[in-house]
Write a protein that binds this DNA or RNA. Structure first.
Lengths: 356, 356
DNA sequence: CGCTATTCTGCATACGTATGCAAATTTGTA
DNA sequence: TACAAATTTGCATACGTATGCAGAATAGCG
């Protein structure tokens, strides 16, 4: 069925003429807080409805110099953590009357074209949630004077805002948990080696173990990717010194690692091997996996992210702000339980070594 | 660190002045195919680079009446199928120099605000990939003269374009597969009852079974949601006439159903129960599940979607087009195997009852 | 070299809205 | 009723770019 050519679109001037007022009046009708009498307002609204008028956001942006668009850069969505974040971001931004321009589906490191697009649309803010290509891109954006928030990531120079959780403490808590469970040998499946999350989790874990008297940690790298994690798991489980406690840097990899352990090596979990993951994302909760996992509070992280952006947009001041939130170690069936320290909260078991 | 107030942004006029040419010349430099000598072009490009100029897409949109933005509406991203689609869409649209405005994170059925936003940004096209809120919204958009494509969904009145796979044939193939595997009793866990995918899959399945002489199919409804699917599974498995072959309307639910079957009811898969899903999405391939599943070719579906949109945008003609693609039944470990009909393709087992 | 045909260029204007300013209207008060 | 104060209104202009048009520059050709 052919509906024909694209309709021209109703303009404020047309509405003005139809309502017998000036174009300014129409504009003011649709500008909250503008000076307009309720009489003309209703008159305008009636005409607008009749003509099917909707303010042209493009034209508005041009004059206000505000696009009400936030760019979100996520290199990949394979790890369910990111779709979760995206969905929550959609909600939070919509509540603030902002919109979400998504940049995804490019694995390569050519951040320049992305940056170009961002700049061309004069986005009001940028959320960088991809683990790679953050550093250069964030520098560029900050230089351009656009508010940027790194999501679940930080950079060395902390000139750009970020929202993260206490990854180092998380790693340390997992070390505590393993040792409290009576484990003696430890392994780690690393994420992307140059990512801050991986660095912090690993450091906290290794330091935590060292503080408890365990100096050796067997390490393989899974690069936060499923195939790499499988390969890492195979190497890990083929070692003569296969550890009995294994921290996998995120749940996305932990799922793969568990599959390899059980179905390729016949390892029983948690009898032969304890596994702890990170993110507490969907599949971790599925009974087939039941992964004991450090949570990252997505909702609160998103709220903090949006809050920072809104503040910076409103004030025009780009003052780097770092929000660091707390997670909890949700205890399920993938790791041996310690004798003490497990408490209930909201019907879930979490590990709290000392009363906090 | 405070970088100060937002930079004003370099305009084409400033570049023009710096390069000693007119603003038109600058515009033409950045408009492919415009009439400009290579001499002035290089001059302009030099000045542009020096000043850090980037064309303002907002202003450009205002005059060309083309935003180069495609709106994508996805109610929820919990089912990994949709993040997959999103990632692929990101790639495909970027290749055409289009951008992706994402609307997600609203479960409620208030489609009107969404529609308002779409219209305000004068998007060049709309992709509706959420199973709910499609009908009304698509009507509205079509009336407004904006190209719309329904992704993985159709409506009764087929005035609006759509991209789907042969869901009815898929259901039928699954019926064939089950019967060929020697099953005698059959069940179905339904998706959203008013969705076209669910309707077609169910119809094909039931008709296929009937054609083979089996008239009773036990049905529970999971609404394409994980919690609902778990509840449906519990009801299904508590029945006296629990079927031995169960088609679950998508993999997202099938995973939940398998977990309930194994861990709550102690049902062995595939010894006691054969399960087949739909979508062939991530977790279906994980060894813990190994779901035999009808695939939907995401990449090709996305290509078709973008192609339709680009055609309609270029021609200005909104002629409803329906692309229906083929899927394959990927055979894994969740269902008993038939004696014949399984062939290898690209290292994967698929079910092809007759040579096609 | 002179003429025409072609390619480039700049001028002016348009896109649809927001907003400062001054005029017009309404409201409040004595 | 009369006047000041407060509110509302319309006018004009600006935002940054694209583009039709006419004139300027260049190329082509005998």
């Amino acid at each position: 069925m052919d509906i024909g050519v694209k309709k021209p679109g109703v303009t404020s001037s047309q509405v003005a003429e139809h309502a017998g007022v000036s174009q300014s009046a129409v504009s003011r009708t649709f500008t909250p807080g503008a000076s307009i009498s309720s009489k003309t307002r209703t008159k305008v609204l009636a005409s607008a409805k009749q003509l099917g008028y909707r303010p042209n956001a493009i034209a508005r942006s041009l004059i206000t110099n505000r696009s009400r668009i936030i760019a979100v850069v996520m290199a990949y969505l394979e790890n369910l953590f990111y779709p979760d974040v995206l969905e929550e971001l959609g909600r939070a931004l919509a509540a603030e009357n902002y919109h979400l321009l998504l940049f995804t589906g490019f694995m390569d490191r050519d951040s320049d074209p992305v940056f170009d697009q961002l700049m061309q649309y004069r986005v009001d803010g940028i959320i960088l949630a991809s683990t790679s290509l953050s550093s250069e891109l964030s520098e560029e954006c900050a230089t351009a004077g656009i508010p940027v928030v790194l999501f679940n990531r930080t950079t060395e120079r902390d000139a750009v805002s970020s929202v993260t959780t206490r990854n180092k403490e998380g790693g340390r808590r997992i070390a505590d948990f393993f040792v409290a469970g009576g484990h003696k040998t430890f392994g780690y499946i690393a994420g992307l080696e140059n990512s801050s999350t991986n660095r912090d989790r690993q450091q906290g874990y290794v330091e935590g173990l060292a503080a408890l008297g365990f100096d050796t940690v067997v390490i393989e790298t899974g690069n936060y990717s499923r195939p790499d994690a499988e390969a890492a798991a195979r190497k890990m489980f083929s070692r003569a010194d296969r550890p009995e406690a294994l921290f996998v840097a995120n749940d996305h990899m932990a799922v793969a690692v568990m599959d390899v352990a059980r179905h390729e090596f016949g390892i029983r979990i948690p009898e032969d091997l304890s596994i702890v993951g990170y993110d507490d994302v969907g599949p971790a909760k599925w009974t087939s996996y039941g992964i004991t996992s450090m949570s990252q509070p997505v909702k609160r992280m998103v709220e903090a992210t949006v809050e920072i952006l809104m503040d910076q947009i409103a004030s025009g001041e780009i003052e780097a702000e770092h929000r660091i939130l707390n997670g909890d170690l949700f205890v399920r069936t993938s790791a041996r339980l310690p004798a003490a320290g497990i408490v209930m909260r909201d019907g879930q078991q979490i590990y709290r070594p000392k009363e906090a």
